[in-house]
Computed example of a mutant assay.
Amino acid sequence: MAAAAEVAPRTVPLYFCSRQDIALSRFTESMDQLTARLCDREPHDTAMEILGRWLGRWLGPVVKFPPGPPSGRTTGI
């Protein structure tokens, strides 16, 4: 891993305790960002709107979502 990252072999353990930490670091970071956005949302923003915008940022380059609710469904749960 160190070679692929072009760092010294002893550098990696300074930042990550295990390979699992490396694998989950982006997931943990993104969940922290989602949590912060949910906690800091404006009163008019729903949790689903925040989640949708967050997903759009992560999946936007890969998947294009049409605006609005899926066809044949309402916005209520």
Rank of each mutant, 00 (worst) to 15 (best):
V12N: 11
H44C: 05
T74I: 01
A5E: 11
R37Q: 14
L59M: 11
T28E: 14
A2Y: 03
S71E: 13
G52Q: 12
T46R: 04
P66L: 07
R53V: 00
E49K: 12
L59W: 03
I22W: 13
P43G: 07
R57S: 12
A2C: 04
E29K: 09
T11S: 15
T35D: 10
T35W: 06
T74M: 05
E42R: 15
L24K: 07
D40S: 15
R10Q: 14
A3T: 09
P69H: 09
V63S: 04
R41S: 04
G68W: 06
A23M: 11
L24R: 06
F27K: 03
T11M: 09
P67V: 05
C39R: 02
R41W: 01
R53D: 01
L14E: 12
T74H: 05
P67W: 02
V7R: 00
V62Q: 08
R10A: 12
I77S: 10
I22Q: 12
G68S: 08
A36V: 04
R26K: 09
C17A: 13
Q33E: 14
G52K: 05
E29F: 07
T35M: 07
L14Y: 15
L55S: 03
G68M: 08
G76Y: 11
L14N: 13
P69L: 05
H44R: 11
P13D: 13
Q20Y: 08
G56E: 06
A8L: 08
E49N: 07
A47Y: 03
D21V: 03
P67T: 11
L55E: 02
A4D: 13
E6D: 15
C17F: 04
D21T: 05
P61R: 06
H44V: 05
F16G: 08
S30G: 04
G76M: 09
V12W: 06
R73V: 05
Y15W: 13
T75V: 05
P70C: 02
P13T: 09
K64Y: 08
S71C: 06
L55C: 03
T46L: 08
L24P: 00
F27V: 10
A4C: 10
L38H: 00
F27H: 10
Q33Y: 00
G76F: 12
S18Q: 08
I77P: 09
P66R: 11
L24I: 03
C17R: 12
I50F: 00
P69M: 08
W54M: 02
I77T: 03
A5F: 15
G60A: 12
A47F: 00
C17G: 14
D40M: 09
L59S: 04
S25M: 09
V12K: 10
L38C: 03
R41E: 00
Y15T: 07
W54D: 01
R37V: 00
F16C: 09
V7T: 02
R41M: 04
F27N: 05
L24W: 03
R73N: 05
F16Y: 15
E49Q: 15
R19P: 00
Q20C: 10
L14C: 07
Q33D: 08
G52Y: 07
E6L: 15
T46V: 05
A47P: 02
E6Y: 07
